[in-house]
Every structure is written in C-alpha cells, then in structure tokens.
Design a protein around this nucleic acid. Sequence first.
DNA 1: TATTAGCACTCATATAGATAGAGTGCTAAT
DNA 2: ATTAGCACTCTATCTATATGAGTGCTAATA
Lengths: 347, 347
Amino acid sequence: MILKQLNEREAQVLKAIVYEYISTGKPVGSRSFVQKYSFSLSPATMRNIMYDLEQMGYLSQPHTSAGRIPTDKGYRFYVDSLLDTYETVAKNGVEVREELLTREIELDKIFMSIVRMLSLISKYTGIALMPKPDFTVVKHIEIISLTANDVLFIIVTRTGIVIHKNVRLSSPVNQDELYKYSRFLTAELSGYSLVEIKQSLINQLRTVTGIEPQVRDIALDITELALKDEKEPEIYIDGIENLLHIPDMVETEKLREVLRFIEQKDTLRKIMEELRQKEGVFTLIGEEIKEIAIPCCSIIASSYKIGNSPVGVVGIIGPTRMDYEKVVPLVDYTGKVVSNFLTQMTK
Amino acid sequence: MILKQLNEREAQVLKAIVYEYISTGKPVGSRSFVQKYSFSLSPATMRNIMYDLEQMGYLSQPHTSAGRIPTDKGYRFYVDSLLDTYETVAKNGVEVREELLTREIELDKIFMSIVRMLSLISKYTGIALMPKPDFTVVKHIEIISLTANDVLFIIVTRTGIVIHKNVRLSSPVNQDELYKYSRFLTAELSGYSLVEIKQSLINQLRTVTGIEPQVRDIALDITELALKDEKEPEIYIDGIENLLHIPDMVETEKLREVLRFIEQKDTLRKIMEELRQKEGVFTLIGEEIKEIAIPCCSIIASSYKIGNSPVGVVGIIGPTRMDYEKVVPLVDYTGKVVSNFLTQMTK
DNA sequence: TATTAGCACTCATATAGATAGAGTGCTAAT
DNA sequence: ATTAGCACTCTATCTATATGAGTGCTAATA
C-alpha cells in the first residue's frame, strides 16, 4: 500500500462518512450518501473514492456489498480534524455551570456531581479520576492510637482532603508519645507536597536536631510506612446505564465485558493514570486501548491540574461511534473548569 | 376468592413448580412437569391443581395455553418454606473464608472483598451498606484549620473509621484555639457512641465546668454542626455485570431501569436502611420493593451487628427467579461472619 | 485522464405461510 | 376424586420469496 496524504476531497468525504456513520450506525453506501450530503458527484465516483479510502485503511466493509464503516484509523482522522477547530465551539451550548462547583465544599461531592453532569450532558458514561494527593500540600498531620500496636496516620491537605492509613507498629506506643510525633511532623512537613516529602524531605529530616532523636526517628519511620503504598486515587463513574442504549452493544457478551472492565476499576485506573500525564484532551479509540480490548468503546478524557501539575482526569466512556463534536469540547471544557477551581481552591 | 391453607400436595406441587421455573426459566406445563418430577398423577389432575393454585394467586399464566409461572406470592411461599429448613445447610458448601477478613485492616477494603465474594459465589450482584457510624465509639477528635473560617472536624472511631466534615465558622479561629477544642472534646466524648453524643451528651456538657466556658461552648457548637447532617453510609456494589446474564433481562429497557436504580444509590440506600432494622436474613421479592418497581429483581439481605446494634447490611441483588437455596444461607452466613468480626474488632 | 452510466451479481432483511409442539379447558367415563 | 380424550390456542421455527441497497467492472463520455 502506498502512503499518501489525503487530498482535500478525500478528507471531506472521509469526515462526512464518519459523521454519517456516527449518527446512523449503518454502513454508508455510495448512492444514498451522495444524495444526502449533496455531493456533486455520481455514486460511481463516490465508490471509487471509497475504494481508495479503504485501500488506505480509513474505511472497511463488514461484508461484500455492504456500505463502508470507519476503521479506528478513520475515527482517529475524524477526531484529529475536529480538534483543530473545536475551540471556538467550546463555550457554546455546553452547560457545565461553574457556580455549581463553588457551592459544594467537599471534594468527593464535587466530583460526583461533575461525573453526573458529564454523563447527563453527553448521554454516555462519565468518569473521573480523583486528584492524586501527591501534589497537594500538607496542612496537618495527626497520629492516633487505635490498639496497642495499631495507629492511624492522618494527613490533612490544604484542600481539605483527608488521607488516612492504618499502620502497625513493631512495639506499642502510647497516645502521649504519638502527640509528640504529630507535633513534630506537622511542624516539619506542613507546607510541602507529598511528593516532596516522599522523595527528599524524609531523608533530610533524619538528621535534624532540636528534637529527641528517638521521636524523630520513629515519627519519620511511621510517615515513610504510611506514605509507602499510597492508596490509589478513587474513580467515580456515573451513567453506566447509558452504555446499554449503545446500538452496537446488542451482543450481551460484549456488554458484559465492558461492564466487567468498568467495575474492575484497576485497569481503568491504569489507563486514566496514563492519560493524566498527557496535556489536554486525549482520545483513546477502540483498539488503541491497549491494556484490554473493550469492544466498540472509546475514552475521551482530559487531565486537570492544580497549578501546573496534572493531578487527575475527567472524561467519558462511550461507543467508538460517538458524537465527538459534542463530547470533545465538553470534556475539554470540564477539565479546564476543574483545573481552575482546584487551583483557586488551593491558593 | 376463598382463603384457604394449601394442603400438603398443593404445597409440594407449588414448591416444585417454583423450583422448576427457577431452573429453566420457562413456564411450567402440566404434561412435561408430572413426567420430570415423577408425580404419580396424570397431567389432567396436575392441571386441576395448577388451576387451583392460580385461583389462589400463587401462579399465573403469561397467556392462555402457556404453562404456569410463579407470582410474587408464589416465590414468597417458596422462600419461606426454604427458610424453615436451610439452617442445617448453612455452613456446608459456602465458601466465605473467615481468615480473609482478619488479614485486611482497613474497613473499606474488607467490605469491598466481602461484596466481591458475595457476587462471585452467588453469581449475582453483591451489595453492602457500610456500618452506620452512629453506633461506633469515638476514640479521638481533632479540629484542624483550613482557611480562616473553615475548619475540618475529624472523628476517629474505635474501629479506625475516620469521619470528617468541613465546617464553616461565623468568625475566624486560629489553630491553637482549635487544639484546645480538640483536647476538650476528645477528653469528654471518647468512649461514647455518636448516637449518645448527639442525643444527650452534647447538651449535658453545655454546663460542664473546669474549662473556659467559651472554649466549651464553641467546641460543642462545632460538634453539633458537624454531626448534624451526617453523611449517609456508603454502599458497595460488585458484580453488576452478572445482572446481564439474567435470562429475563433480555429487554434492554428493563435492564436500564435496574442499572439506573443501582447507580442512583439513594433509593437503594433507603431500602437497605430499612432492612438494617430487621433481624436476620430478609428477602424483598419483586413488587414487594415498594419504593420503586425494579423489574424481575429481588434483594436478599442480612443486617449485621456490632454487639447488639444492627449497623449495616450485606446481601445480593438478583433475579426474582434465583437460586434461593444457595443464596439465602450464603447471605445469612456472611452477615454472621461480618457481625462477629466487627464485634470482635471493636472490643 | 477523470468521471459517469449501465449492468450483473451479492448480501442482509423483511414478510408471509406452513407446520410442529406444547399447553389449556372442558366433558364424560372410571 | 381422578383420568382419558379431544378440540382449540398460542408460540416458535422453518422455508421460500421478494425487496432493496450495495458493490465491482466495463465501456462510453467530457
């Protein structure tokens, strides 16, 4: 196959075919297509173009004598061409209301309503990866005794997120001793982000003076232990039922697979985690989702930031054949709103 | 219709019909049924019995000249008759492993694995209502300043549950002042359950002496505010995909309704909350779920306790036509295991 | 050289009719 | 009280057939 840039006409046709297939769900045939889109071309010519596009890998046929449907490569072309122009659309007709955010205080509720909104507006499944605490700034640390050997390590971040972890000690420590640790840790660590603490601060503090060395050492040990295997940030999902009215999902087995994938969350989290590190809106189409084959599904996601660090992801899961014009700006815009909000909140 | 006790034979037949319908999913007809279950009766007699059972409301026909299917009343009869005898089966063949529980420390993880197990073993959807914190005993209270007027109120319970809530104050308070509050509250409230604190303790403490009256008053105000509209306990769900292979769920619209119901969580929570207050295993069959019509679904749930207070619920959601023999003991046993574990843990 | 008209062929889908199978209700006989 | 027999009903399944939309190819046209 010869590599070749699409010429203008081919590009137009390809976009229109993908668009048509997205809205109807039926393979696009030459005759009705030229008519509907008033191309001043005969069906025969259209067939030739389609044939070329098929050769180049943008289209395929479910069977001989059926119309064409886009391949993943075809969708990819379509989305990319959208991204060039969608920004002007972004604020129009998209109903994410910023005030909604400021009314709520608790972060989990905020994200729940964001995910709900995404699903309601897009009519697909909304997803959000909660902010990775790594980049949030410690405000307070408290260690509380549970049983003789078990303590609860609590970090409060400046955003009001509470991270807590049970830690089992090798020897019992009483609560008064724990208070000392808490005071020491709060004094030394507040104002720093978790990632700074993990990567360097703990080790620097190992030699700090002006504190009983034993308190210092045990306190830092507990901190290290508590931060070691940090809990994966939660994923919120809403609108799973929207996956059901995806026309391509008639085969129950496919649907089960998708549901299992979504419920399982680990794989989804891994994928989201990767997306977090990309800039802006990112789209995973069909088989491009490498970890697992989720049939007929695409993910459109945007990482959001606190300041300059991308800390989480919002987006939607929908059918590969989906309404990209609407969804891409929606997800992008939502990401920006969340970024602004969180950045504001942390100041 | 004349109210009448079922005679022995009718009861036998009814049980067998429900059983047969549960396993095959097809309306039970007279001829094949007498054959399969080797009743020494002719199909005609069976038809007469079926006719009677239908008159009494235990069976119905999807259409003339179809076999019979159980009504909700029929299922109810079947389950009740099961409950009389299942206890001997309870510990056999049920694979909830108690050791699994003791290895985990964090409560949410414990419940996640319980729900997972329920869904895996039953092949239906597992559900759990987390322990209502009302009956858990306070271990420690800490108030931490977030912004000038916002503070974070943290309660740690003896079980290691962390409850936190943002509270907005009318006038700014600095962190040192907050420490005083924390110390006072921890001293006065630890060892009491939240429900005791809410119902009487706060008011009793209003007049306590030996502490600056201002600290006392504000601290109690904050506590009252924080405990006022307590967060609803979370619901864990696993195995939604199992709802898909329910044969009666072929109609997508039904399935969507069920999924929406499960995702919505509020209604589910209300139902679970009611179940929490019942003793032992409880079964809601089909239309008996009053809040909403979840088509073809039943809920089997068991409340679990800490000490003597029922604090939460575990159970499963499955098709009305489900394998009650297996599920009822499973849910019951799981409830007991969780009760033991939590009661143990809290001591 | 690019486009178009025409034609034979393919495939998926929809429709209608026929048939088989399982079930019921009723009546009369046991 | 139970059963055999019979006419009737409803569903599911199969078959055949027609229809429509699509393709690829070739030859004519601009």
